[in-house]
Amino acid sequence: MDTREDADTGDVGSWRHYGPSALPKPLEAALEAFAERGYDGTSIRELAARAGLSVPGLYHHYPSKQALLVSLTTTVMHDLLDRSRRALAEAGPTPIERFDAVVESLLRFHMFRRNQAFVASTEMRSMEPEARRAFVALRDEQQRMIDEIVEEGVATGAFVTPYPKDASRAVTTMCVAVASWYRLDGPLSPDELVERYLLIARSTVGARAD
């Protein structure tokens, strides 16, 4: 599978392509440290050393450890949202086509951006209240994409689940959980996992075979 980082080219299907993360050095250092040691277990001195900066040099770019966490998680969520929006824009007009596109985007993100997704999810607890509210708003925007598609599918008869809200959240939870166990060198290729999980996701919302 092609995993080139060409997400900004505007090419059809570019939302599927992943390459090395293009985070600035301080954010890359924060990502690695928070994934390994957690936010509370990481010091500013360690972050500066990982980024190849002095502590004052790091503070010049990010005034606190909290600022690093907020910048990192915001960048992660904007990347996910951008990919999901582009997947949706390229999808066909039917609820099942749109559903498949957003679910595939979620799956691929949580396969290829595992550490980013893990840190954003687990360290929400470490955010200060205002930052947490902003992060939750971005997360809710992603969830609404699936909620609205499933609700439309139920209204048009394309999906038959009696619990559209619960079903859409179950699908999201399943996709997010991929980040906790998937390995690129494991038995399933990305395309195989997408194919398998799309079947499970369709079943969850009661997608009609016809």
Rank of each mutant, 00 (worst) to 15 (best):
S54T: 15
V103H: 07
V154H: 06
E128I: 07
N115M: 15
A137F: 10
R114F: 07
A87P: 00
E123V: 06
R169V: 09
A91M: 02
M77A: 12
A117S: 15
R169H: 15
M174Y: 02
W181R: 05
Y62F: 14
M124H: 08
F135V: 00
V160N: 10
T73F: 07
V171Y: 09
Q116S: 12
G57C: 10
P95S: 12
L80R: 14
H78Q: 11
Y59W: 08
E90T: 00
T94R: 03
R139H: 09
S121A: 04
S64W: 04
R86K: 15
A120N: 08
M124I: 13
E90N: 02
I96R: 06
R133C: 01
N115Y: 14
A167L: 04
P162N: 07
P95I: 01
R169Y: 12
L107H: 08
A137E: 11
Y59D: 02
L58Q: 05
H61Y: 11
T173S: 15
F135T: 05
R85F: 02
H61W: 05
V76H: 12
A131W: 02
V55M: 09
D100S: 06
V119W: 01
A158V: 15
V102T: 04
G52A: 13
A170I: 01
Y59L: 15
T172I: 14
D147Q: 14
R169Q: 13
T173F: 12
H110F: 10
A137T: 10
H110A: 03
R85L: 04
A134E: 11
E151Y: 03
L68K: 01
R98A: 01
F112M: 11
R144H: 14
F135R: 08
A117E: 05
K65L: 04
F118A: 09
L80P: 03
F109S: 00
W181M: 04
Y62P: 05
T75N: 03
S121R: 09
R85T: 07
V103C: 04
V119R: 01
F135S: 08
L68P: 00
E130T: 12
H60V: 04
V171G: 06
A89M: 02
T73H: 06
S64G: 01
T173H: 05
E123L: 07
L72W: 11
A120C: 07
V103I: 11
F109P: 00
T161G: 03
R86H: 13
V160E: 09
Y182G: 04
E104G: 00
A167P: 08
R108L: 15
S71E: 15
E141Q: 09
L68S: 01
F112V: 06
D147F: 14
E123H: 14
Q142M: 03
L88Y: 03
V150R: 04
G57Y: 07
V55W: 03
H60L: 08
L69S: 07
R108E: 12
H60S: 05
R114Y: 08
M145I: 14
D140Q: 11
V102M: 03
D140P: 01
R85G: 02
H61M: 03
V76F: 09
M77Q: 15
R85N: 03
Y59H: 10
